[in-house]
């Protein structure tokens, strides 16, 4: 400590601040140029669906088990509720997807049978199966934090994509593309 001044004659040390700054610069350049993607991707994307077995939400459709989703063909899993207004808003898009031959299963969150029936009667029923998730157990297990959310599931029952929020008309081509990718 008799000479703690950093004025050493060794010139290399003096370049260290500049080198550190250069590192910072490269890092933030990378950050700036990267396309802005502020969505937090679900940690469950790429993972198989957890095992679950839900009773039917309405008598007209069967309930939903995890095994039902692994049919060899990619499917959509739509998390919805009759009390959820954006779910009603996305109904036309779901109907359009169903019309194009996409298989869609539903999970009704914290719902009553008569409410779901009324909802489906009013906004259409694109679902092949609808499971009733009364305590949000399945919702939480697949990493969904709200309604509506839509998952792309491939033929082996693996989650390939998570769409948070309602499906807008402009999201439909993107979802079809994700389904095609999952089918490959």
């Amino acid at each position: 400590m008799s000479d703690p001044t950093p004025t050493r004659r060794n010139g290399l040390w003096l370049w260290l601040p500049l080198a550190l700054f250069f590192g910072f610069f490269v890092l933030v350049m990378f950050g700036l140029l990267r396309p802005a993607d502020r969505n937090v991707a679900s940690a469950f994307v790429g993972k198989p669906l957890p095992a679950f077995d839900l009773r039917p939400a309405v008598p007209e459709r069967p309930g939903l088990r995890a095994a039902d989703m692994a049919t060899g063909q990619p499917r959509l899993l739509n998390v919805f509720a009759s009390w959820c207004i954006p779910c009603a808003a996305e109904a036309p898009q779901l109907a359009a997807l169903a019309q194009q031959g996409v298989a869609i299963d539903g999970v009704a969150i914290r719902d009553r049978q008569e409410d779901v029936q009324r909802f489906l009667a009013q906004y259409g029923n694109p679902f092949a199966r609808i499971g009733a998730d009364d305590v949000s157990a399945v919702q939480l297990a697949i990493g969904s934090s709200g309604v509506p959310e839509t998952f792309v599931i491939d033929g082996k029952g693996v989650i390939r994509h998570q769409h948070i929020g309602d499906i807008r008309a402009e999201d439909v081509p993107m979802l079809l593309e994700k389904l095609r990718e999952a089918g490959r």
């Binding site: 004025t7 010139g11 003096l14 700054f21 610069f25």
Partner: peptide, 17 residues
């Protein structure tokens, strides 16, 4: 960057305190 480069080239010639 400029200031740190200036520092790197000049600091070695600043006499020790």
């Amino acid at each position: 960057g400029g200031a740190l480069a200036l520092f790197a080239t000049r600091a070695a010639t600043i006499t020790e305190g």
